[in-house]
Design a protein around this nucleic acid. Sequence first.
DNA 1: CTATCATGTAACAATAAAAGTTACTTTGTT
DNA 2: AACAAAGTAACTTTTATTGTTACATGATAG
Lengths: 143, 143
Amino acid sequence: MRKDSRLSRVLHILVHMAAIDRPVTSEEMAGMISTNPVVVRRTMALLRKAGYVTSARGHHGGWQLAQPLADITLLDIHHALGEGSVFTIGLTDEHSHCVIEQAVNAALKDVMDEAEALMLQRFGQITLDQLGTDRISHYLHKS
Amino acid sequence: MRKDSRLSRVLHILVHMAAIDRPVTSEEMAGMISTNPVVVRRTMALLRKAGYVTSARGHHGGWQLAQPLADITLLDIHHALGEGSVFTIGLTDEHSHCVIEQAVNAALKDVMDEAEALMLQRFGQITLDQLGTDRISHYLHKS
DNA sequence: CTATCATGTAACAATAAAAGTTACTTTGTT
DNA sequence: AACAAAGTAACTTTTATTGTTACATGATAG
């Protein structure tokens, strides 16, 4: 199944950005994740719309963090990237009058909603600065 | 993101099958989920391989349950359909030497693994017979 | 002022896996 | 022997991310 790796990639970029004290170009970022500057701009534009980064054109232009990493959670970035469902499992929609289809879909939806809620809650607890050096000790103490 | 609706569809079929006391053809099943007999056979073949249904060719052939619905969980069917990840969120694999990518991926993987474990555990608690009439009361008592 | 650098954006191709389709073979029953 | 059904191979369609090309827009340096 096709995967959406934008979250993984953009987090990678953001953590790098925090360590660079100047605007970073799409070209540089593309190098960080082995892709094309246009792909980078497309994704970064979503983060700019949500207020997490700024961009500037022209000489010495590029992208900069608008907030410290400690103020941004994985959930924030996940939301900034869009709405789509988190699961590859889809529900059918063709016989909504059929009680069996309704029961099947309701059961699957219940479980998936619960799992998604847990996932998003965890994402909301992790700030981007924790993706630096202290991640290991953080997880050693999580339970 | 493209969704895999095989689980939803095949559950729908299985519950219908339990109410029909004779072999059901791929043609009939295709009608239940508005698709093609070949698509049905492809998916049902995975369930047969796992032992949940049997098939017979020729006159009065078709598919039959090999076990009562009460003995089969959503997790059983999920596993029978294959291995693929449950999430549309993918991890990048291009710079495995980069500690930042490692940290990002590890954090995402931790959370996704936990959510998937919860989901599969819930799937394991729901048997297919519960997708009939008693589903509502079942969920009223779940917590 | 103008050359250059960088973003902004439109338009299109590549990709991948499920889903859909066609055509044919094999097997079992009437 | 005729027929009904699964088995299966090969191909097309679908759909969203990803990749790519091309060009417009805007900002800065000199």
